[in-house]
Nucleic acid binder design. Structure first.
Length: 173
DNA sequence: CCCTGATTCGC
DNA sequence: GCGAATCAGG
């Protein structure tokens, strides 16, 4: 994975927002936190004021003022806030994706938990997470639908669960 | 131990 | 330039 202009821009943005190197690495994908830190230094980006944990601004659930929305806007896909995974750290309580307020978390292990879009079977694409959610015998059955990397049928969060024993999955979910 | 960023140095 | 290994911490 090389440092394209696009990836560098994303790195700069996330670093300036106070995300930790490992969180940024998880969002970029294909790089280690060391790689991120190394790049930050080579770019001569300002280092962290204090070593250690990320600044509170990146961890504290900060309520963003309700974003102004077009009054007549109707979401194309029904969207709910994802359940907060155990131990997850909130990085943005609310954010807007295509006009829909959504929630995103970073799990304890720094695996980014992508936004759950709760898509139906026919709405899935190559790039959506196919982790099933809900009861297939009920009408609330859907799929995570979060963004998944090119190489996986699952988002970065559900990828890990997919290869865990069922008992472990129940705990982790 | 979990995590953080900083530095070094072989590639 | 890159990033794993390592260091020094919280």
């Amino acid at each position: 994975m090389n440092w394209t202009d696009e990836r560098v821009e994303k790195l700069k943005k996330l670093w300036s927002e106070g995300l930790s190197a490992s969180q940024i690495a998880a969002q970029l994908g294909g790089v280690s936190r060391n790689a991120v830190i190394g790049k930050v230094h080579r770019l001569n980006l300002p280092g962290r004021a204090k070593a250690g944990s990320a600044p509170a601004s990146a961890r504290t659930p900060k309520r963003t003022p309700t974003a102004p929305r077009a009054p007549s806007f109707t979401p194309r896909v029904a969207t709910r806030t994802v359940a907060r995974p155990a131990g997850a750290t909130m990085i943005h309580e609310e954010m807007e994706v295509e006009g829909v307020e959504e929630t995103r978390y970073v799990a304890k292990s720094n695996v980014v938990v992508p936004i759950s879009r709760r898509l139906g079977l026919t709405e899935l694409t190559e790039r959506t997470c196919k982790w099933p959610v809900g009861d297939p015998l009920k009408d609330d059955f859907h799929f995570c639908g979060g963004e998944s990397p090119d190489s996986s049928p699952y988002c970065t969060y559900h990828q890990r669960l997919a290869y865990q024993p069922v008992a472990e999955r129940r705990k982790a979910r």
